[in-house]
Each structure stands twice: as structure tokens, then as C-alpha cells.
């Protein structure tokens, strides 16, 4: 995954926001790749307990800031190597620049309303150059009867019209390898059918770049949208009915 966004990870003083960092494994890789990187993690506090511990122990000489309350959030020290913001404080984040926002395998697991709030954060509150998403998308029909899955994202990461698409791919090979040979039984059960076949459309990798609003082109957007809709309608199989809003 780090190779996918290496153009930005490798820049001096690059600022990265990761939403849902889990243990902090990607953050660790990013910091090792580029020691000058400044990394902000937004996550549930109980998960921050893990990433904060993990990263502090991995980088004992780095500067850390764990945001405890709104007052500290208002004085965010973005020069720190790692900043941790609990999710319950996110709605008070003010406009801040990030070179790159990353999310992998968590937006697709949140209720759509929460996903939309994060996308609003990325697209309206913050000033973001690039956004990388690797997520399950379009709630699969087989989850419909799962009580604990039915509130998960339906269409996942809605992008507004001012992004340029740099790349996209269904279930990239490195994800397929993980799904087939790694991960937990629970994860595998979501992606692999009864016959052992991998549902390669279950995951979508997106890498997009923000286009300045001044370059927004409503007519061009409409034409591109119509073109994409035609392609979408050409697919023989749709994963579900919730593919648009």
C-alpha cells in the first residue's frame, strides 16, 4: 500500500492524515520510509490506545501529541511527528492542510452516515491534496440478513466533482493475497464464496487528487458523469441496489 502513495509519502515534511489506523502499522511504515513525515491519526479512542502505544514504542525519540480535549484540539501541534485525535473530537477540527488522507478497510465498515461525515471532513472541512481509499464497497447482498453487518456502508466513499482520478482497481493483487492466505477466518468469509472463489469486486482501491475549485467544470463533470453511468449500466451484474444515492 505504501508503494501506491509513495510519491507523497516520500516528500519532505509531507503531512498525512489516516482515518482508522488500527494498530498503526501503516503509520510505522510511512515514518520509516520518510522520517520527516508528519502523521495524524483519527480513530476511536480505544483503538488509539493501541496505535499510540505501538508507535511510541517503535519511535521512542519522536514527538507525539495525544489530543485529550477540545482545548488541545484548538492548539493542534502539527509539527509533531505523530498526532492522535479521538473520533469524538473530530467534529471540532478546523480547516487544516494535509497532503494525503488515507483510509483502508474502515470506511467500508462504518454506517453510511458516518462515512458521509468523514467524506465531508475530507472534502469540505480540510484542505486535502490527495485521498487514498482501500475499502470494501457496496454492501453485499449476503450481508443483508446479518444483524451486525446491516448498518455498514452501502456505497462507501462518495467523491464530489473536484477530484481527478489518479488510479483505481478492484481488489489489487496485494489485497487478494491477503484475503486468500492471510487475515482472519471472519474476513475471509466475507470475500470468498462457498466454492473457494474470491469475490474480486468486493474491494475498491481509489487514489484521487484534488482539483482546485477554480478549475471546476460543471459541464465537463456532467459529461464525464454520463459517460461513467453508461459504463456502469453496461455491467452485467450489480452487487446490490445501493450503488448510487
Amino acid at each position: 500500500m505504501s508503494q501506491r502513495v509513495d510519491d507523497f509519502l516520500s516528500r519532505q515534511q509531507s503531512s498525512v492524515l489516516e482515518i482508522g489506523a488500527g494498530l498503526g502499522g501503516f503509520a510505522r511504515v510511512a515514518k520509516l520510509r520518510n522520517p520527516s513525515i508528519r502523521y495524524v491519526i483519527v480513530d476511536l479512542l480505544d483503538t488509539i490506545a493501541l496505535s499510540y502505544t505501538f508507535l511510541r514504542l517503535n519511535f521512542p525519540d519522536a514527538r507525539f501529541m495525544l489530543v485529550h480535549n477540545r482545548a488541545e484540539l484548538a492548539e493542534l501541534d502539527l509539527s509533531a511527528d505523530f498526532v492522535f485525535i479521538p473520533a469524538h473530537l473530530v467534529e471540532d477540527i478546523e480547516r487544516t492542510h494535509f497532503d494525503l488522507v488515507i483510509n483502508s478497510f474502515s470506511l467500508g465498515e462504518m454506517p453510511q452516515a458516518v462515512v458521509d461525515s468523514y467524506m465531508d471532513l475530507i472534502q469540505e472541512t480540510l484542505e486535502v491534496n490527495r485521498f487514498y481509499s482501500l475499502n470494501r464497497y457496496l454492501q453485499h447482498e449476503k450481508f443483508a440478513d446479518w444483524a451486525d453487518e446491516s448498518d455498514q456502508a452501502s456505497y462507501s466513499t462518495p467523491l464530489d466533482s473536484t477530484w481527478n482520478l489518479l488510479s483505481w482497481e478492484f481488489c489489487p493483487p496485494f489485497v487478494q493475497r491477503h484475503l486468500v492466505s492471510g487475515g482472519s477466518k471472519w474476513i475471509r468469509s466475507q470475500y470468498i464464496g462457498a466454492g473457494g472463489e474470491l469475490d474480486s469486486t468486493a474491494t475498491l482501491e481509489l487514489y484521487v487528487e484534488r482539483r482546485p475549485y477554480s478549475q471546476d467544470d460543471p459541464d465537463g463533470n456532467r459529461a464525464r458523469s454520463d459517460e461513467l453511468l453508461d459504463k456502469a449500466l453496461g455491467f452485467g451484474t450489480l452487487r446490490g441496489a445501493k450503488w448510487h444515492r
Binding site: G22, L23, T47, L50, A147, D148, Q152
Partner: peptide, 11 residues
């Protein structure tokens, strides 16, 4: 049971 799907998967 709902936490089964949580962000801790893999962690």
C-alpha cells in the same frame, strides 16, 4: 457481537 467486525481485526 457487533464488535466482531470492529477496527481491531488484524490488530
Amino acid at each position: 457481537v457487533q464488535f466482531r467486525k470492529g477496527l481491531f481485526q488484524g490488530c
